[in-house]
């Protein structure tokens, strides 16, 4: 401890005080971490306070707003009503938007999984240099603003865009392909950036699978495919689950890609919510849609968690 205090520090007193304080802190930490459960709360309180202030309170406020009755001529609390939720949940048009949102989330998750798993496997099996290079490649799309990235895709996917021009020039098609304003365009726009969120958890799960396990399986006569199917894949499932959960939640809450790449008829819950906030100024209804998105995503994630626990041979978390 005394090494930490710079030489020439005025008088010995602060030094002694510091030591006392450090000892007290260490005792407190020990008590919290290893002995008393009640004092866990004390330890967590700074973090909890920040969470409550920055996360829970705004969410509660929004929940309150979602129970107001909208009026075009005033904005403020009204007698509370569930009307906004009823309006959304008892209407075929809005219910179809929930289905489309889920569809978008699932398709994007599957696409990133199909492309991301092999890459994660390659990364886990390569040298540090190759791995670092691939990691940078995977993370690069995250460094560009989402709007800029989407405008880039608009140029590439448009009727006279890069892809269509190339295909027309090669004579593979004689009519431009309709890619813009379809689900495919939205999935492409989402998958590009969410790829990283799929690759990284799987990669780290695969790193946790010791090569010795594979060698043991191979020694016992398993073919490479059986080694993968029965050893590597099951042990990497927690990573797959984490990646899927991340990609799915990001996809169902994405707004820019559906709005700009999906076209006007591509109604997902986020674009409908945005419309309520900016175009109709019906904030209570917009807030209600926000909570329905949250509920839908949470419900799906819980189902995913249950399914994963069923498939996974060990309890999640053990393999990582």
């Amino acid at each position: 401890m005394s090494n930490v205090i710079p030489r020439g520090w005025p008088t010995g007193r602060p030094d002694r005080l510091l030591r006392l304080a450090a000892r007290a802190l260490r005792r407190l930490a020990n008590a919290v971490l290893f002995r008393s459960r009640a004092s866990t709360l004390i330890q967590l309180s700074p973090g909890l306070l920040i969470l409550v202030a920055l996360f829970a309170l705004p969410l509660l406020f929004l929940a309150w707003v979602s129970l107001w009755r909208h009026s075009p001529n005033s904005f403020g609390p009204t007698p509370l009503t569930l009307e906004n939720y009823r309006r959304f949940l008892f209407d075929g048009f809005f219910l179809r938007s929930i289905l489309r949102t889920l569809q978008l989330g699932i398709v994007t998750t599957l696409v990133t999984l199909a492309l991301g798993y092999p890459l994660a496997l390659i990364m886990a099996r390569s040298t540090a240099r190759v791995r670092g290079f691939l990691l940078v490649l995977v993370l690069t799309p995250l460094m560009v603003s989402v709007v800029v990235r989407v405008f880039g895709w608009m140029v590439i996917l448009g009727d006279t865009g890069l892809i269509n021009k190339a295909l027309l020039a090669l004579g593979l098609i004689d009519q431009p392909l309709r890619i813009m304003n379809t689900m495919a365009a939205v999935v492409i726009g989402l998958a590009q950036v969410e790829f990283a969120f799929m690759v990284l958890p799987i990669f780290s799960a695969l790193l946790g699978v010791g090569r010795s396990l594979e060698e043991a399986a191979a020694t016992l006569g398993a073919s490479p495919w059986r080694v993968f199917r029965h050893v590597v894949l099951p042990l990497s499932l927690p990573g797959v689950a984490a990646g899927s959960a991340l990609v799915f939640s990001l996809s169902v809450s994405a707004f820019v890609q559906p709005q700009l790449l999906g076209g006007s008829s591509f109604f997902v819950m986020t674009t409908l919510m945005y419309q309520q906030i900016t175009a109709t100024l019906n904030w209570p209804f917009g807030a209600a849609i926000g909570f329905i998105i949250l509920g839908t995503a949470l419900l799906t994630l819980i189902l995913l968690g249950v399914a994963m626990r069923k498939i996974s041979p060990r309890r999640a978390g053990h393999a990582t």
Partner: peptide, 11 residues
């Protein structure tokens, strides 16, 4: 007064 109704009907 009609923003909400028009947007909804338009959708």
């Amino acid at each position: 007064q009609f923003r909400d109704a028009w947007v909804d009907r338009w959708n």
